[in-house]
């Protein structure tokens, strides 16, 4: 009996830890700021326009956070 309870506890513990791992994976925040900086860099690289880069950063951050 003790053996069965021990095994069930192990199975339950493994199940719990894996489910919280899944939850943790889903909760990892998306790096919107990093993406927005990369996007602004790409835009600046193609245009050489600081205003375009600024607008690119603002819009990429806003859209990423919204989605």
């Amino acid at each position: 009996m003790k053996r069965v309870i021990f095994l069930m506890t192990i199975v339950f513990a493994i199940g719990l830890s894996s489910s919280s791992l899944n939850a943790a994976t889903l909760k990892i925040p998306t790096d919107c700021e990093g993406m927005a900086f990369d996007y602004a860099d790409h835009v600046y690289d193609q245009t050489g326009d600081g205003f375009a880069a600024g607008k690119a950063f603002t819009v990429a951050l806003a859209l990423c956070e919204m989605m």
Partner: peptide
Amino acid sequence: YKKEGDKVKARLDEGW
């Protein structure tokens, strides 16, 4: 105008 734009780019380079 370009100088004004460069200020915006500098702000980005400094982390906004």
